[in-house]
Design a protein around this nucleic acid. Structure first.
Lengths: 180, 180
DNA sequence: TTTACTATACTATCCGGACGGTATACTTTT
DNA sequence: AAAAGTATACCGTCCGGATAGTATAGTAAA
């Protein structure tokens, strides 16, 4: 209790390993070492590598879900609030916390159904976004552009400059506010 | 000659393995088997796994580059031609050919600099797109949305319905044509 | 005769997971 | 209150299987 659940610490350690050494080096031993625990101890909490990765994904999915929901809830304007929440949280929070990135990478590599919690999330959000009071296609494009920015960063394909990123952010927010 | 360069066949085989069995099962043996070649034969062409993955990336990068360049060249309207080319080729061609997906996945997993050819590509395109005669931020957003759609599909995060995809495609093309 | 292979055998390493213990704290029995 | 039992949270070692890469001898075709 006093110690904020060792399980979560292990999850962060695993993310760190993926980020620093790549997916192929996400081993139980490396994760244990990073978490300052023994391999046996790690296996006690997560009985297999797959369980570990599942833990990562579930943790980040619930975190992300909460953030978006809170942000939408606090928005004074109803119309377009889910789109704005998605843009805001993704640009300003998910961005910093690379756990999202590395958890996805690990999940994609390990097994296809370990991505289920994320797929659920996106299904929910897509639904909210399409009934958000603005043109659904436009709303979808705003979401896609937001995804494009962090996914291409996750993949190391393209890193947008911060000035340009800010301009994109502003324009997307504008579009989520327009009457059209 | 008669046989269209065994090297390219091997590359396709490797993609197929990644697509069907995941990154962790992209082994030299599995690739050789899929290509109908012996492991020794594979190693003859690609002396290491890293070389194999590099081959995949280089091949798909040069293919993609050609397609975009051709498409832009054939566009009768100068303004916005690179943006349109990017949208067109990505939606209509790169989409079908999942080699892009699997090559990237493999590269990301194996080593960071094996992605260099792709990064170069994106740097070039981003440059063209920003000097394409339309608002650079808008152009960037169009590109990002296009990326969002295939990257989220690559990741298995979200698969857009074909009707909606078509609508998104049309709207993005419209935006690439507008005066604004 | 060089290029493009096949086939087989082998080495060295790494990794997931199992397992047998240990330490501590809390609970029940006597 | 001492003794016995139980649950939780680990540690450290070991092993089987898989895999990258090497070596080598031989074959077929251009």
């Amino acid at each position: 209790m006093g110690r904020n659940s060792r399980k979560v610490e292990i999850l962060h350690a695993a993310s760190k390993v993926v980020g620093e050494q790549g997916i192929f080096n996400l081993t139980l031993e490396a994760t244990a070492k990073e978490a300052g625990i023994s391999k046996g101890g790690l296996l006690y909490h997560y009985p297999s590598k797959e369980a570990l990765v599942q833990g990562m994904v579930e943790h980040l999915a619930s975190d992300y879900r909460k953030k978006i929901a809170n942000n939408a809830e606090e928005d004074p304007v109803d119309k377009g609030k889910w789109v704005r929440a998605y843009v805001d949280v993704t640009f300003n929070q998910a961005y910093q916390n690379k756990d999202m990135h590395y958890g996805l990478l690990a999940a994609k590599a390990v097994s296809s159904n370990s991505l289920d919690p994320i797929r659920e999330l996106y299904t929910e959000w897509q639904n909210e976004i399409e009934h958000d009071g603005i043109d659904p296609i436009k709303a979808t494009i705003i979401r896609l552009a937001t995804d494009g920015i962090w996914l291409s960063e996750l993949f190391d394909i393209y890193h947008i400059e911060s000035g340009k990123k800010e301009a994109v952010y502003k324009k997307l927010k504008d579009w989520a506010n327009e009457e059209d």
